[in-house]
Every structure is written in C-alpha cells, then in structure tokens.
Amino acid sequence: MTTAGEIERIDQLPSGPLYVFGYGSLLWRPGFDYRSSHRARIHGFHRALRVWSFHHRGTPDRPGLVLGLDRGGSCLGCMFEVAEGNKRAAAEYLWEREMVTNVYIPRLVKVACDGGRFTALTFVLDRNHEQYAGLLRPEHAADHILGAQGASGANPEYVRETVAGLERLGVRDQGLRSVLRHLEGSLDREFPSD
C-alpha cells in the first residue's frame, strides 16, 4: 500500500476511506460527496499563486492565475473524509478537475488535524510545467488575475472565494489577502462608485 509520495493512478490510493487535502477552490467548491471535513496542516509544501490557468480561470491567450502547492514550508487547509463507497467517484472527479493540463502532480501527503494524522490525496504543482508562473509580486499577480476568465468563471472570483473559504477555517493567508487588496483597488479604479 502506498502511504506517501507521487501516484499516477486512482488504483494506487490506499484502501479504506479517501482523505483529500484542499488548499484552494476545494475549500469553497469541493464538488464531491464527503462525510466530514477538518482544518488540517501539511508540511513540506505551501500555498502560492504560481499556476497560469489556461482552462478553469483563464485561456491560453489570456491566462489567469491560480493556486498550487509549491515546495517548502507548511500549509493550513481542509481535509475532507470521503466514505469508501464514494471513493472512486470522488477520485475520478478530482482527476478530471485537477489534471486538465497536467500542471499538478497527484500526491499522497501526511496530514495532521484534530482527529489525528492521516494520509491524504492532494495535487502539488509541477515546477517543470509550462504553466509554472514562479514568484510574482502581489500587484503583478493582481494584474494577471484582473479580467481573466475561464471555463469555471472569473479569476477575481476565485481569489475572493478562496480568501473567504480560508477565513471560515480561521486561516488568514496574508499573501492572498494582499493580492485581493490590489484586485479590489484595481476594480475600484475601473468602476468607481457614484
């Protein structure tokens, strides 16, 4: 049984329930059935706006910017527990959602939460992929996000909803909040109120 590291196929998931670690849009739009969720932390990766979005929140001609788990540090997010009976459907849905362009690597990670320690599925970014954006200053990230739209909607909505989802968990991600402040300032200048 695989307990940690990269996986390539759904049949490599551990037996029993499926645990999923969410750090971005899964916080506010999981899209799969789960029986419980818990605030949780992983080590060795951190949340960062470092993925050019060519599909969900942008296009190849006008890429948006979305989150990925990049190497180093730790990340507070949410662990979802999926009953074994729903495991295959949830995993297939996640593969379809996250692996559209293969910018992410499916990985089993160790997750710590109030309920204990678990091995969870998550998706980390591939630094060698053409969609890896690298480190961007908050104002530059906001410039790319503003006006970008893809199959899942507007890119600014993604940032706003993710910040709100994190805050519901009691997590204040200063980097994302800084990008959101720049976005809101740009929107205020573009659409001034009367």
Rank of each mutant, 00 (worst) to 15 (best):
P17A: 15
V51A: 04
H43Y: 06
D61I: 00
Y23K: 03
R35I: 11
G68P: 09
A112H: 14
G44P: 05
K87S: 06
A112L: 08
T101M: 12
K110L: 06
R97N: 12
G116R: 07
R97T: 11
R29A: 15
V51G: 00
G24C: 10
M99K: 09
A48D: 14
R41F: 01
H56C: 02
Y34H: 15
Y23E: 02
Y93G: 11
S25P: 05
G68A: 12
R62F: 02
R71K: 13
T101G: 00
G73T: 11
L26V: 11
C78P: 00
Y34F: 15
C78K: 12
L65M: 06
V100D: 03
I105R: 14
F54M: 07
L76S: 11
W28M: 10
F54L: 13
D61E: 15
E96T: 12
V66G: 03
H43E: 15
P30C: 12
R71Y: 03
G64P: 09
G77N: 05
R107S: 10
G58V: 08
G72M: 08
L69T: 05
R39P: 03
G72H: 06
P60H: 03
R29V: 03
M79H: 01
P17I: 03
A48V: 01
A112W: 06
D61P: 00
A112E: 15
R41N: 02
G22Q: 05
R47D: 05
K110P: 01
N86P: 00
P106D: 09
S74K: 01
G22C: 06
F80C: 05
C75M: 09
S53F: 07
E98S: 12
L94R: 02
R39C: 02
V51S: 01
F32T: 04
W28Q: 07
A90W: 08
R88S: 10
F32V: 04
S37C: 13
